[in-house]
Design a binder for these strands. Sequence first.
DNA 1: TCCGATCTATTTTTT
DNA 2: ATAGATCGGA
Length: 784
Amino acid sequence: MLSNSIVLNPLFAGLNTEQQIAVSKTDGPVMVIAGAGSGKTRVLTYRIAYLLQLGVDAFHILALTFTNKAAREMKNRIGELVGFREARNVWMGTFHSVFARILRAEADKLGFPSNFTIYDTDDAKNLIKTIVKELNLDPKIYQASLILGRISDAKNNLISPAGYNQNEETISDDKKAGKPSLGLIYTIYQKRLTQAAAMDFDDLLFKTNVLLHNFPDVLYKYQQKFKFILVDEYQDTNYSQYLIVKRLAATNENICVVGDDAQSIYAFRGANIKNILNFQKDYPDAQIVKLEQNYRSTQIIVNAANSLIHNNKDQIFKTVWTANESGELIQLIKASSDLEEGRLIAQQIFEDKMNRQAKNTDFAILYRTNAQSRSLEEALRKLNIPYRIFGGLSFYKRKEIKDILAYFRLTINPKDNEAFNRIINFPARGIGKTTLELITTEAARLEKGYWDILCDLPQNNLGINAGTQKKIREFVIMIQSFQSEIEILNAYDLGSKIARASGLISNLQSDKTPEGISKYENIEALLNGMMEFVAKENNEIQDEESLKNLTAFMQDIALLTDADEKEDEKIEKVSLMTIHQAKGLEFPYVSIVGLEENLFPSIQSIGSRADLEEERRLFYVALTRAEKKVVMSYAESRFRWGNLTFSEPSRFLEEIEEKYLASSNIKKTYSGSASNPNPYKPKTSTRFSSPQTRTSIQDNESTAPKYTKIQSKDSEITNRPNLNFVGASIEELKEKMLVEHQRFGKGEIIKIEGIGSNKTAFVLFDEIGEKQLLLRFAKLRIVK
DNA sequence: TCCGATCTATTTTTT
DNA sequence: ATAGATCGGA
């Protein structure tokens, strides 16, 4: 069993026997089936720390995680255990980021430049739309998102365009579905990606497989390099990922996978639960370790989750149990509408916070779809509870950011047609639709990139008139001037130059709407990020020499995900996110909202048992995020697609054994509070709790529920009627005043600077921290 | 070429 | 509901 040296090793002191085995069995294949809350992350970090302690070179360890954030956190914890010098050298990251790095190093073998572009989902969809158009196919039948899904499926199962077109089954499936051209689209799509020196997300895995398959010397090299491989969230790997791992681990077989079949929630994007179920077949001598003790949650929560998941047929025998206290029953809230649901949940959080001295950060609200966040946000705002939404449109998905990034992309890789499309006439420079069509047609004919056609224009003007030709020439010269400076300027210097020279900055500066200002600020934020990037000490594994240039910056941010966005400031906030995003996280108090048929389980899943079971696992994941208390809610009616729809409680609610549910009579009449509209005067933000103001807002909203209200045409602000944002006159504003901004919420003026039209206020906002506002733009309402 | 009016997809989850 | 795309007229 365990040797003495292990028992006496302080690293093992805090681990139970099973965990100790999982950490210490460093030779040969190991699969850890880790129930929810059973210390999975702990095992992974300790295992790596132990390897380092044994003298394994950090460069020989590869750890694949589900998010970059998970990798970062793990690295930190390992650093704390065995020192950061070593920890930083471990290869740790998502499949996509780790293998993107390897692909860049080996790109020439695949016929790609090392600075290839990574197309995101939008780029990929746009490319598909272009192809569908070119083929004169009906875009309603050949919907970009559906086609991309199909292509993605193929790639995740390592089916190339050729393979796709040879497969009788797919061909006849597509024909039956009325989409016989799918194979052709896939073929062209892939050709265009190569021409654009671009890879989509799935290519990063697909091409890695090609690389490891076609180049035995490369495979050998990485097999020697990665002597120890660890994979987190193994239940959510797809076939393509599975095969990469299998190939890399083939010689040493020092592979440790950690996962929980009960938490597999990504089958919709190709994750294959069989990878975990078949591990023993691939490695007959594998050691299987089961972690079944839950350290996270109360008995009520663990047992309730167990009672739910037992309704699934496909699962690995496992009993999750806990020695924790029994805890509180699960609370179930019934609301009449989504708006009321929001109010009741917010109110419940408010009470729990008061009664238990809990912090905002102790609370999470989890939902099935992002669209559900609206009503919750509104309700939280009214109770002055700060919150943070994860997901939604992330920083890098905003238009203005994508615009400037497109300039960066075209500068780095002029073959990047999607970047080209985005910026060729933005800001408007008189290169219109007609001209563009000439260019794209010619590009398709010659199988060249759009940029190349522009560069050829002096020889072949395609009948473009002289004026437009001049404009094109100016554009070309501008981009070329950026290109010539990639190796000379650092990322920040070149980035700010591009922001100005492209006209993006002046374009936004002329936009005086709040949206325009916030866009301008976002560009500023991006440039600040670039400055940080340049200033930051190089703690990546890349060679010290690697420049902090634009190329490096783009590679740094290409695969960032929502979960990686920097956490802002010090204000403690309630977390709002989808259950998918909550994977791997834990909170003392968790609310799971929208437990209605057709929403959760989602309507798409109801038809098939496999899909339904995935939804159930999703609910299982949600429940097991909670440490102390779970609140569940559903609404009898809800706005969806702008329509009021009626709904039934989710079938999952019946599947939780009743004894774990509080027998609350469910309908807490919120209307009862009418006599006392604001019974819970928030203590948290006494600064702004001028009750008159708030209650007046509340009264307004609660007496006139949204859906009965006739929306006026100038809707922009109708969400918040009676908040008169005409803008206080500049002279009225003084330091220390409490003000409210339409977008940023309430805040205090810290100081006022400047004169005349340049007068600027520094406002510390409750929710988003300090902002500088040019008073001639900012519409502020004086609160006090 | 530009602007406003109208149409349309979106809402399941994401690297 | 709403943002983005598309269309049509000036």
